[in-house]
């Protein structure tokens, strides 16, 4: 030990904060321009695509809190989206149009569900954790499919947009667009703050070495459970937005394939990076749209792309972007 200059690795891990912020602002600005562009080219198709991409980005960012930062491979995350969407669909079907009532119900249901699953799943780790979250996700999927009075497997059409404190803000596409973008930016900022906070530090430390963190005096399970609830609630919020945007909800929102897609988005974009989940989700939805317009078997093209990215872009797309920025 000496006072020599700090050797390699002395810089904080991860991308330079300023660069990550610039990338995020650029992405949000580009998304804000979409409604203007759609007036000239693309029309409703373009805004609808962007809304879908942004909703997935919200969910992916929430999943990254668990997957990337917490090391918790939740394979049932889409269940929370479905819970939020169905809370909205069912309440509107039952004549409750006020968002101020729908939101607390959606959030409360997701939080309750997260606590229930989490209390069981957090006792395990690794493959068991994956299996338990998958199993609970499937339970939600089949439970929603059995709701005969709410469309069962065929899903449920929302005949009316919800009110927001008595206004019809969410009845226009612009209103929905601005709201989804706003929630996306807020989610991005919130998850980032949480990751850097005291709570986030315990969560990130527990991913690296849970035994050490417990020996320091932290009840690891409690921190993980809280992270699970936060991520679940955010995903449910995205589900509410989905229902409002699509005016239709179906059990397939909560299918395990969708949970898998969400994991792919996060890994593809770069786990536990500032913008990885955001970039991964946008990229995934855009590529899906582009490729599926060419061929029905678009996954045959998408699969090899994933393999290439996994092989050559360690740290995902965000890591790639970081390298483009040049060496530190």
């Amino acid at each position: 030990m000496s006072d020599e200059a700090q050797p390699l690795g002395a810089a904080p891990a991860g991308p330079r904060p300023a660069f990550g912020l610039i990338v995020a602002v650029a992405i949000f600005a580009a998304l804000a321009l979409v409604p203007l562009v759609s007036g000239v080219w693309g029309g409703g198709w373009l805004t609808s695509l962007a809304i879908r991409a942004m909703i997935f980005a919200i969910v992916a960012i929430s999943l990254d809190l668990l997957l990337g930062h917490g090391g918790l491979v939740s394979f049932g995350h889409s269940a929370f989206v479905a819970i939020g969407a169905y809370a909205t669909g069912i309440m509107i079907t039952e004549g409750v149009y006020e968002m101020a009532l729908i939101l607390p119900v959606a959030i409360g249901a997701a939080a309750l569900f997260a606590v229930a699953i989490g209390a069981v799943a957090m006792r395990t780790s690794g493959v068991s954790f994956i299996m338990i979250t998958l199993a609970f996700g499937q339970m939600v999927y089949f439970a929603l499919g059995s709701l005969a009075q709410y469309g069962a497997d065929d899903g449920l059409t929302l005949w009316s947009a919800p009110d927001v404190f008595g206004t019809s803000w969410l009845a226009s596409e612009t209103g929905v667009y601005v709201t989804v973008l706003g929630v996306l930016v807020a989610t991005w900022a919130l998850v980032h703050a949480v990751v850097g906070s005291r709570f986030g530090r315990v969560l990130r430390a527990a991913r690296q070495n849970p035994t050490r963190v417990a020996a320091m005096g932290y009840s690891v399970t409690r921190y993980r459970l809280v992270a699970y609830v936060i991520a679940g609630v955010i995903a449910a919020l995205a589900g509410v937005l989905w229902a409002v945007h699509a005016e239709f909800v179906s059990p397939s929102l909560g299918s395990w394939q969708r949970s898998g897609d969400l994991i792919v988005m996060v890994v593809l974009g770069g786990m536990a990076t500032r913008n990885g989940a955001l970039i991964g989700a946008l990229f995934f939805v855009l590529i899906e749209e582009a490729l599926s317009s060419i061929t029905h078997d678009w996954r045959l093209i998408f699969g090899p792309m994933l393999v290439l990215i996994a092989l050559f872009a360690r740290g995902g797309l965000a890591g790639l972007l970081d390298r483009v920025q040049g060496p530190r």
């Binding site: 904080p12 891990a13 703050a193 949480v194 906070s197 005291r198 709570f199 986030g200 530090r201 315990v202 990130r204 430390a205 690296q208 070495n209 035994t211 050490r212 963190v213 020996a215 320091m216 005096g217 932290y218 921190y223 809280v226």
Partner: peptide, 27 residues
Amino acid sequence: SILPEFTVLENVALAAQMRDGSSFRFF
């Protein structure tokens, strides 16, 4: 048994954090 990805300072600061009020602070 350390936290390999954290800086040396952050390893120890996390231990100190346990004695300094709640760690359920999020922002």
